[in-house]
Design a protein around this nucleic acid. Sequence first.
DNA 1: AAGTTCAATAGATATATATATATATATATA
DNA 2: TATATATATATATATATATCTATTGAACTT
Lengths: 117, 117
Amino acid sequence: MTVDLELAPKTKRAAGEPCCEPVVYPDVEREQAERIATIAKALGDPIRLQLVDVLRKHAGKVCVCELVPLFDLSQPTVSHHLKKLREAGIVGSERRGLWAYYYVIPESLEEFSAWLS
Amino acid sequence: MTVDLELAPKTKRAAGEPCCEPVVYPDVEREQAERIATIAKALGDPIRLQLVDVLRKHAGKVCVCELVPLFDLSQPTVSHHLKKLREAGIVGSERRGLWAYYYVIPESLEEFSAWLS
DNA sequence: AAGTTCAATAGATATATATATATATATATA
DNA sequence: TATATATATATATATATATCTATTGAACTT
């Protein structure tokens, strides 16, 4: 199953000689890595992952007042996590009167999902 | 496309009355969220994401000395990131003489990948 | 208008992270 | 055996993060 292709130094080098050919790393890939890492970082907290999970499962918009009691956390802390998710572009929010409704922006996860599979 | 199912308070409540029914959050989901968040957190840095990307693309084992020049970082910093990936169970390593070879453990990403899609 | 309620922001604090430099360890070569 | 090399660990530091309490802002109710 595991391919035995290896990226490895061929032989021992003379003293002072650098290990490998300098490898060019295209900027495009770096930028993609940054985009994906931004999403991953936002999901890298169990609370935020559960928030996204709940929002995705409900396929619609969920009131913050329903989210807070799911966690043993203060309302401001939940708001803080929602803000992180908003900043990463994973969720959006909409205010209706007193209530704020959050929802997942599915496209935000597409690039990550594609890379991962 | 967007379903209009909403989780929302039905009416305004009397003063002091709690917002919502207490929602039970099963431990199983919490533990799964923690497992996935651990993976996401490890991937939540562009350097680490690129490391995993390179290792996956090579489908085999890659020498650390090939990884270091890909980044504008010191060798110990790259080692630090590789350690984080090891701790998260995303990569494994094998030493052969002076060289250390890293590889992705594909199963480590499966649960996350499944959740995401 | 006054009071209530929901959510966001501000401020404070303790912990975690990314990075560098310096050092240690193991192994290869001369 | 002595020296050089590849990688890992240790230490230090500046920045970021997660959390709390207190406060603010906005909108609804009476």
